[in-house]
Amino acid sequence: MILFIILGMSLVTMIPRMLPAYIVDKVHFPEWINRWLNAIPYAALGALIFPGILTVKPDQPHLGLIGGAVAVILAFLGLNIILVVIGAIATVFLLTF
């Protein structure tokens, strides 16, 4: 039964990932759709960051926000992304320890 669930989950995840590969092969989009698709990554990043970041520690939403603020500052200073990630982890760690 669990195997059936896994296979089903796999199919409904893989098919939507794959379909666009075939669609962009066949269809030529007008320029405004291309612009839309090019802006998607930035919109996706926004939607993925917030409000999800509040659930880093669900009972203390401010921890996620502070960690995020540290990440914003470090990234704004132009630090390598690995250091941004480590800095945010260290911040949340120190605040919860």
Partner: peptide, 13 residues
Amino acid sequence: QSMGIALYAMFIG
């Protein structure tokens, strides 16, 4: 728990 921030920090970065 602290590492739960990692992927969000990556998105921000």
